[in-house]
Every structure is written in C-alpha cells, then in structure tokens.
Nucleic acid binder design. Sequence first.
RNA 1: GCCCAGUUGGCGGAAUCGGUAGACGCGCUGGUCUCAAACACCAGUAGGAAACUGUGCCGGUUCGACUCCGGCACUGGGUACCA
Length: 822
Amino acid sequence: MFFIQWVMIHSGFQQSNMRSRQASILRSPPKQILPVTVNNLIVRTSDPSYYKWTQWIFIQLFNSWYNPETNKAENISTLIPKLKNFNSLSEKDQSDLLLEYRLAYLSDTMVNWCPQLGTVLANEEVKDGVSERGGFPVERKLMKQWSLRITAYADRLFDLVEKVTTPQQKKAVEEYITFAKNRSERERMADVKKISGVFTGGYVDHPFTGKKIPIWIGDYVLAGYGTGAVMAVPGHDSRDYAFAKHFDLPIIEVVQGGDLSKESYDAKEGKLVNSDFLNGLEVKDAVKKAIAAIEEKGLGKGKTNFRLRDAIFGRQRYWGEPIPVYYENGIPKVLEEKELPLVLPEVDKYLPTETGEPPLARAKDWKYKGKFEYEYSTMPGWAGSSWYFLRYMDAHNDQRFASKEAVDYWQNIDLYIGGAEHSTGHLLYVRFWTKFLYDLGLIPVLEPAKKLINQGMIQGVSSFVYRLAFEVTDTLAAGPPIGFNAWEAAFLTLKEIPFFISKKRLDKSFQDFKYQGNDLEINEILESFQDLFNKEIPNFTGKLKISRYTPIYVDVNIVNNNILDTKSFQNWREEYKNAKFLLEENGEYICGSEVEKMSKSKWNVVSPDLMVEQYGADALRLYEMFLGPLELSKPWNTNGISGVSNFMRKLWRLYHNGEQFSVSDEKASKQELKTLHKTIKKITYDIENFSFNTSVSNFMICVNELTELKSNKREILEPLAIVISPYAPHIAEELWLKLGHKESITYAEFPKVNEEYLVESAFNYPVSFNGKTRFYQEYDLSLSKEDVEKEILNNEQTQKYLEGKSPKKVIVVHNRIVNIVI
RNA sequence: GCCCAGUUGGCGGAAUCGGUAGACGCGCUGGUCUCAAACACCAGUAGGAAACUGUGCCGGUUCGACUCCGGCACUGGGUACCA
C-alpha cells in the first residue's frame, strides 16, 4: 500500500526543487515490487479529505487536558470545576490559564531562526552557526509556537507493562526517550577537551556526613540536568575526574574496582567503600538505599526523569496542514468540526513575508468569517503520519476518521516495519496519538502496532574527488615583471581549471586537509601542475604553492569501483569541463568513498528502476532480501544480483523442457520429497522469524538439488511454487497458471511439513579433542550415548590422536558432538 | 557528549538452545563448448608447504565460545524543523 506524504521544501525559495522531490517519492519504490496494488487504499496525508481529520484530531487535543488522577486525557470541561475562581477571570485570562493544561497549546520555545531566510531551520540545516543553504547567520530565538503536551504521556510511553509490547518495542521505546537538550548545550558537551570552571565561593552540607562541600561550576555540566541538587563523582566519571585533576580537587573512591591514581573508574559495578551506611553494597542496591534514606529524612523524593520534551507542532512553512485555529482579540480559538477542512490558501510565493511571518500570511483575504486572523504556521510532516494506520482501515469515510466498526475490527497493525531512523520522531508521535485517541474512547487499542521491527536502511556509497587549492607566489619577484594580463590570467586559470588529485597520492601528502611537509611526492605534484599551468598561460612566471584540498561529492553513477570516469566527470558539470587530474601511476583516478545515508545532496542515490528493467521485479525483490538480515543496514551494491537472476532461470527450467512446459504426474521419489519438505520446514521457520535472506539461500539449495535429481514431478513442483510465491510473486503466479490453475496462487494453501520425509537413520559425529574438531565418524541413530562413547574410544583414529595417553574426560552429546579431553 | 545497532574469507552474508565456523550467492582461478567473445556447464577458492592458526582488540566463564560475562576500539543510525 502506498502512503504519500507532504513533501516539504527546505527553505522557501526552491519550488522547482520541491516538485522534483515530490516526483521522486511518487516513483519509488517501483510498484512492480509490490505483489498487490490496492488502488482504493492509497492514503494521501496531503489530501484535504484526509487532513480534515488530522485537523479534527488537533482540535480534540486542544479540547483535552491530562488528568493525573485518572491518568488519562479528558475533555477540558472536567478541569474547569477544579480551577479556583475560574469564572471570575477575564476571557483572556481564562484562555491563558487553560492553555497551561491543554494537550495542544501555545508556548514559548527556542528555535533556530534565520532572519535572511525568514524561516526556522532544523538542527541539521545549521552548520557552524550559519544556514547550510546560503550560509546566513542563524540565531536562537524565543518563538510562540503550537506544541503538543507529549510529556503528559511520558510515563505511559515508557511504561512497558502497559498491555502490549514486544522486546523490539521495548528497544524502540528506549530509543524514543533520547537525550533532549538544545544545541548550544550540546556543543559545549562536545567540547570536552577544554576544562574550564570556577569555584563559586559557596558550600553545601552533605546530607549524610554533614561535611561542608565547596561548589564549583564546570562548563561541561548541563544547565537543565537535575533539579538543584549538587552532584559530582570525580572518582567515577571521566569528565568529573578530569575536572578534579585539573583544579586539584580531592578524589574519593566510592566504588571499588579501579585505580583512581591513574584514571576514573566509570563502570557501575563493584562494592561501595568510604560511604558510611552504604559500604559493601553493589552500586544498584546502594542507589536504592540512598534514595530511601533521603526520603526518610524528608530531604527529597525519588523520581524517574524522562528525557522527553513537548513536541513543537508549528512550522513556518507553506506545505503542511493548516492549523485549524483563529485569533479573536488575541485569544486562540479552534474551528468547529463542520468548518473542516481548513484548506491551504493560495499564495503568490511560497516565501515568508517581508516582516518574517510564515508564507500563509501572504494569502489574500484569508480570514475566519472574514475578520479573524488564522494561525499562519502549518503542521509538521509527522502530523498526518501519526494516525494514517487508522485511515487505512476505512479510507473513504467522510463522517469520521474511520468508522467505529472498522477500528474495532482491524484493531492495530500486526507488524510495523520501519527504519530505526524513524523511531525517534514518527513512532513516538504515532504512539502518543494512539494513546490519546484511546483515552477519548475513539479506538480500542493502546499501541499502533502489535509488533515492531526496525529494518536496516539501504545505505549509499558516496564518492569523493579532491580538489586542490593553489596560491600563486613570486609573481612579481621572478624575472622581468609580467604584465597585468598575465597576472590576471593566472588567477582566472586557477579559478577556471579545477585540479583534482587521486586519493592514494593525496593520502601520501596531506593530513587533516593540510599539506604536510615538502616531500618528493608533493614536488612532483607541483611540477606536473606547474607544467599544466604554464601550458595554459605561456608567459606566466609565477610559482604555485598548494594550500589545501577540498573533498567534493561526485555522482556515483560516473564512478566504478572507486575509479572515476574522468571524461564523464568533465561533462558532468559545466564548471568541471576543464578539469585536470593528477592520476595514479596506472593512469587511474581513485576516488575516496564513504558509506552513509542515501541522499540527493550526497550524490550517492541509486535508483532501483534500472534494476527492475534489467532483471525484473522478482529478481530485485529476491536480491533485496538476499542482501542480508532485515534489521541490518548495508550499502547498496548490485554486484550479486546476477546470482538471484540465475536462480530464477534454474527455477523456470525445472518446469520446462527447453521451451516446452513439462511437468510429470509420476510419483515423487523419497529424495525429492525430502528436499521439498526440508525446504518447506526451513521457509516456514524463516517467515516466522523474518529471516528472509536465509529463505532465498534455501530456495537456491532446493532448486540445485531438484535440478540434480532431474525432478519435474507435479507433486514436488506445485507446492514449491506456493512456497516461493511470497518471495517471487510474478514468476510463481505464471508457473501456477501453467500448472493449470484458474485461481491466483495467492489463494493456494501454504503446504505443511511432513516430518516423516525428514527422518535420518545415522548421524555423522564430529569428533573433537579439547574442543578442536579432528575427524568425523558416522554412527546409527539408535546407538545410545554410552555405546557411542565405547565405540569412539576404540576407534583407530581416536587412538592416533590420543598418542597413547588416556583421556581425562569424554563428552558425548547425543547426535550432536563428541569431545575428548586429553 | 548521550542513546541504539553492528564488526565473521577478496565481497554480501550463514551457523535457529553454548556443540562441525565460512551454508548460499558474488568475485576470482582453471577447464569444456566456440574461429573468437558472450551465455551455459564442470572443478577449485579462509590463511598456511605443513604442524597448525583463524569470527574487531584485551581478559574471563566452560569439556567446548562467532554465540555468555567485563573492558576497549572502530563503523553506522538517532539526538526532536529531513521524514
């Protein structure tokens, strides 16, 4: 099923870019890969008939608060009686007060504001304090933003005991609750080498020993961490340790196991020492006991702190669902259900206004009831995707997000497969919205999915070329003065003729982007470039100096095995048409490479379309599975696809004699049945365990064995087609029709294993000495453990390895292994 | 920095409960077919002459460790406005 989402533009000014991105998303994955296309189940979150309900859910969030007593979301009306003097407040004050409780609320949040672009930037769009696009300064700015009170659900998002969960989900939950802190703090944390800090002059009393402890401020401490308690463990935290060493502060060992004169002991394992009533306890127990003791003394209370922050819900972009809010005298109010959807208004440009308001502020006469301003920010990309699993259940309902019958019937997703990179954002919000809708009694489930698998991502292999930067020296000093034109030409040449150095040669001469030393290699480089240079400008007398190099992403489609096609490179971009290269001795230009996420900006995207054209959709499907475990990330490499393609040809041949379809109705042999049932057993196991890569291997083994047996029996080939159909649906369907069936193979029953065919009569024992396998010995399965032991000790080869000694111990694991300890 | 995952031949990977390391495929080498090439087919392919050694590194548990435990290194992902 397809899921088409908003495509956001990065920064307002690239509409054409936006169109191409949208197109590329529509194109991939190639729809032939999917066995079934259910056209009426396409869900577009950008379609008003869909986002009407996204807006509707937002209104429910606005109208709700989280009741800590019942531990669930409730309508805001149940809150009002609990608020003192609520009715005597002004309308504005009432609104402000309620906003402090609503699950969708306006708040002041810190954002990366770029005044020149007039927009808020993602952290990843900010590099070294300037915008990635355009290099404009970025400042941290406090902004009124719509936010969702996801923290109200922190306990429940983290609470794994709550009804449904799987180990995978637990893992995912842990990923959700990741560290939250703002950028400047992160930058300070990253800079751990610098140790700076100061004694404040103040002291605190130790709650248990009563000793006075001086308070220092360190740069590496997070401002938001903890709640006012003073904490430092110089013996057992490497940063605290470095800090204490630097300022010569006392370091007291409290956990045994390290050597504090040399380094900190950070491991949280070991017995406590120098800790009064905690001495002798393990760290875990000591923490519990210390918290209990603090509570007993009335000094504090144990509390679990979640590293979760409320989710900012407003975006200063055009492409997104309008937030169904208008302002009446500065008071935010939501639309009524019958007024939905609030559709995106037309604007002249997808740019912020001159005064820095979001693009929606450009819309002419876009006012609620003709007089009240709408909210100008839009919803983030994840808004629509936070509930689309529900819409699939009833995609065309215009009365409700999905009918009650549908949500009761379908419940939740059986299996959610998504990349780990989605865990933090998307999944967190889906689970939050699901719990919220459950609280309101709108859906019967607490979790969007019964099971969750984090599939690995197919990564790209980026290639780099290295451009050298030169300086011209001695232009005036050398010989007769050269004319202005020659001098200018030199600079133009440097600009217009980019010089690229091959990776291996680069590695010999450069470190950390800087040219190191004046070795032979680099002189050679200079000479060869000087030659090129002098050819370009005959009367040039200046000297070249290499200053540094810059790695540049190069389109992977013109690189093969790290070797650059230099001709194609020159044609790739106008600015490189005069490019010169310093090659390896064998005349090749070697590129640098790195494995990373596929991304247009990294020029490492390979499209599967070509693969489908060349090998077919089944081969691509099989190959993708064959690449490795579902949960592992790996770089996309098409080198092995011919293997699965060959396999499919062999499979086809089993059912054919030359061009002719040929399947016999003879009884299958024991051997053939064994091969078939072995395969059924393995594939059944693999499907249950999502181990699709080994399935493909086993189909190959099966087809190889059947080819060997020259098997073309219907009794074998018919079940085989069914077993393979989930993996290679197109070819299986075609074979199925040729086998004479009228109905699609999709409806055929999956064959069951018959263990009878798999029974063996003997086992070939690996015989090992001190754990090393030396030879094999076959024994009948009926032989008991004791008999095997007796037999093996009398074995001629055993005697050879024993060299006359008598074994200390003989271990026989029945039908598994023999190990003799000498 | 913090959180998560991974590291096995030339390459992708297999080994299901602690019990035969390298299944299957790619690549490579040699051969058959061909005037030749491609395709196809056959054989070999962790290293080493061998004894043996080998699953990122150091240590531990065990008769036995890719698998379990402790520590470390490196790579990838996330870190909240890419979705």
